[in-house]
Amino acid sequence: MLAALSAVFTTVAIVGILLYESYGFFEHVALKDFLTDTVWTPLFENPRYGILPLVSGTLTITGVALMIAIPIGTISAIYLSEFASHKVRETVKPILELLEGVPTIVFGYFALLFITPLLQKIFPGLPTFNMLSPGIVVGIMIIPYIASVSEDAMRAVPMSMREGSYAMGATRFQTAIRVVTPAAISGIVAAYILGISRAIGETMVVAIAAGQQPNLTFNPMESAATITAYIVQVAMGDLPHGSIGYQSIFAAGLVLMLMTLTLNLIGHMTRKKFSERY
């Protein structure tokens, strides 16, 4: 009871601080400028506070990550759940779960020192700091989440449904694609949402490999900063407590929270819509 309460209390406290400090921020900056200005330079002589460049950076990297993670993660889940032998599954799943535990800073340097040079061989004009490389690496990072949660959902589809499909003369592949996947769709969507939240909130990889210049673009070949990268950048500096620059990280954090909250709501609604009744 106390433990549960402490979790609730912590959440309330976090939201409260976010709102309180953001309130201080919005006393100086008009909400309209915050949402429509296209430049984010809170620490310059003439500060401008448009959140859009950070949002575009976040969305671009998330988009690249999902283009990698959703196909690979889903196909891995289908393979593990429907095709792999018991032995293969019991070997691969722990490895996937191990991959989830790799510190993100490792992935960050992996992006900067390995993936970026590799990409520069393919795209010679690619700058050292770009969104493509961390996007791909964040994608690789969330594959295990998507694969593992989707696989759980597919394994939970009762055998009787598969038998029904086989009894109609369906092949293994047809059964996996036409019956098991739709039956597990709510769990699979939940896995995607989890992956997206994770990609949006990812900090280290992008702070290291994407550059830290806020840049209003959706072109993954350019460098940019994300919301999280900005927060970590400012938080590591020596801004005086209570200054507007300090408060700006709470405003950015609030936007981040609203984005993940929206996603969770969408996830919740999708789950309800597709709720399975076997």
């Binding site: 029904g164 092949t171 036409r178």
Partner: peptide, 21 residues
């Protein structure tokens, strides 16, 4: 089967399933 085991599809697609595969 013992327990009705329709697929997570429309009534129409359930019946058409065997033909579709």
């Amino acid at each position: 089967f013992q327990k009705p085991n329709p697929f997570p599809k429309s009534i129409y697609e359930n019946v058409a399933y065997g033909l579709r595969v």
